[in-house]
């Protein structure tokens, strides 16, 4: 599904900062991977590269066997729109749009008619349990609710890949747990490949595999075994 081959990414004029160094990674369809590591270990860079917001200095990133580094910006954007959903620590909802509008936004950007888009968005809101909040704006909602909206927005296309950047980082532990549970649920339904950057060991437990990054390199990759026992 996702494959990184010898991916390096360095920043600065003299390529002094090596954010990622010869990373190789493979995610199978439906696999859930947590990326952990200290600040500056290259987690965010990894996410940005996969979603096509950033380009590797060397190496190839393949999504469904398409090397996204070879695509132009618009093609990458379209690919992102179809195959990759994203959620963020700070939710990043558009503050002026209602929940329904936020969720239907990707569809509408893709040219789906307003009516269809809203029908699908309503269904999606139902799935995240916020059917009743459709007309509310982000600032009228709690953090958990906002993240649910964000998830709904990310999955409205039913993308094969979901990239999550600290999805529980801004939430209290109870709400965080609820969000993770929701992700589990949706994973079951859509069989989405999930790559989740997190500091939260609890969150990592909801994944199949944990890879740890340090100084731009993968230092370990281990399967999560206690997931079933603790996750439910």
């Amino acid at each position: 599904m996702i494959e990184l081959q010898n991916v390096s990414r360095s920043f600065g004029d003299a390529k002094l900062v090596q954010a990622l160094n010869q990373v190789n990674l493979r995610l199978a369809q439906g696999e859930r991977v947590a990326v952990m590591g200290p600040s500056g270990s290259g987690k965010s860079t990894l996410l940005n590269l996969i979603c096509g917001l950033d380009e590797p200095s060397t190496g190839a990133i393949k999504i469904d066997n398409v090397d996204i580094a070879s695509l132009d910006d618009d093609s990458r954007t379209r690919l992102r729109r179809q195959k990759i959903g994203m959620i963020f620590q700070t939710f990043n909802l558009l503050p002026t749009l209602t929940a329904l509008e936020n969720v239907s936004l990707p569809l509408r950007l893709n040219g789906v008619a307003k009516k269809d888009a809203e029908q699908r968005a309503t269904a999606m809101l139902q799935k995240v349990g916020l059917a009743g909040r459709a007309a509310h704006r982000p600032d009228q909602m709690s953090g958990g609710e906002r993240q649910r909206i964000a998830i709904a927005r990310a999955l409205i296309f039913a993308p094969p890949v979901l990239l999550a950047d600290e999805p529980t980082g801004n939430l209290d532990s109870k709400t965080g747990e609820e969000i993770l549970a929701l992700l589990d649920e949706l994973h079951r339904e859509f069989n989405t490949t999930i790559l989740m950057v997190t500091h939260n060991e609890e969150a990592a437990l909801h994944c199949d595999r944990v890879i740890r990054l340090r100084d731009g390199q993968i230092i370990s990759s281990s399967a999560v075994t206690a997931r079933t026992a603790e996750g439910q």
Binding site: L53, D73, R78, Q82, G85, N92, L105, L109, R153
Partner: peptide
């Protein structure tokens, strides 16, 4: 965000 969720330039 708009660009991240698939908004074209």
């Amino acid at each position: 965000v708009l660009r991240a969720i698939g908004g074209l330039r």
